[in-house]
């Protein structure tokens, strides 16, 4: 608990926390507002323009907008979370702060797991706050597009929202765990971030050729776990050959636990010579 609280104090003062969150929310707000503002513009031509406008309006139309905002946060947010996880784990090695804790008699595994738990906590706050901001942005976007926001209070959607946010958080945490593990294995911030980004894009790219394998991969299962069938969503894995949501959710858990087990085993055996 001491370590967990300390982890949160450290993260809440860390520039990377605010940069990551700010970048995600900034992009999200920018896109949603831009989409809303241009939904009725007459740029482009004919049928193409019509489908684009329809898709744009769909993005900011409630209650569907709830899901689409969440998909945005778990999609792009998943990539950001992975980078964040890699940055935190990698810096423990590159700054040597893990060394200091271990030399004080701290358990490596406990230290790293507590650090990851505090990352998960920060992600929970991040997901909720980003979601709130996204909804506000979507309302503004809807106004810009001249759409009604009457679906805002749709009770069926609202009652399902906490569970969906929880699932979204879980998926993002899994992606953070992946970055955390890669950076631990690489013992470096940059290598962790680089490998993580390569993983992310590699997965989407490979899904073109190997959809049956890639659908089991971390980013794809994270997206699939939240899929409702209707929502397309932004960023991340391929929607083409995704798993059913329930199955995907189990796999998210498997990836999460697997990553942390690998981190623990590696950290326990590693020689800390930095």
């Amino acid at each position: 608990m001491r370590l967990f609280a300390s982890g949160i104090r450290k993260l809440s003062r860390r520039p990377a926390t605010f940069v990551t969150f700010g970048l995600l929310v900034g992009l999200l707000v920018l896109i949603v507002l831009a989409v809303g503002a241009t939904a009725n513009s007459t740029m482009g031509n004919g049928a193409n323009q019509a489908t684009r406008a329809a898709a744009a309006k769909e993005l900011v139309t409630f209650p569907g907008a709830y899901d689409r905002m969440l998909a945005f946060i778990t999609g792009l947010g998943g990539l950001f979370a992975m980078i964040y996880g890699a940055a935190i784990a990698g810096s423990e090695w590159s700054w040597g702060t893990l060394k200091s804790a271990v030399a004080r008699g701290e358990s490596r595994v406990r230290y790293l797991l507590a650090s990851f738990a505090s990352i998960s906590f920060m992600i929970a706050i991040g997901v909720v706050v980003a979601f709130g901001i996204a909804i506000v942005a979507a309302i503004v976007g809807a106004h810009l597009a001249g759409l009604s926001t009457s679906g805002l209070g749709d009770t069926a959607t609202l009652s399902g929202l906490p569970a969906r946010l929880l699932k979204g958080w879980f998926a993002v945490v899994e992606e953070a765990a992946l970055g955390f593990t890669i950076a631990t294995l690489a013992r470096s911030q940059l290598a962790g971030i680089g490998a993580g980004i390569a993983f992310y894009f590699g997965e989407s790219f490979a899904s073109i050729f190997l959809p049956d394998i890639v659908k089991f991969m971390p980013f794809s299962v994270a997206n699939a776990a939240l899929a409702t069938g209707s929502s397309g969503g932004f960023g991340g894995g391929a929607a083409a050959a995704s798993l059913p949501a329930d199955q995907a959710l189990v796999l998210v858990g498997v990836w999460l636990v697997g990553s942390l087990v690998v981190t623990s085993i590696f950290a326990d055996r590693a020689e800390i010579t930095g």
Binding site: R13, R14, S91, W95, T97, A103, R104, G274
Partner: peptide, 14 residues
């Protein structure tokens, strides 16, 4: 035991 091994290590932003 208290130790300083090789170079001291800290969080630079704290």
């Amino acid at each position: 035991v208290g130790a300083l091994v090789e170079s001291p290590t800290f969080y630079p932003y704290l």
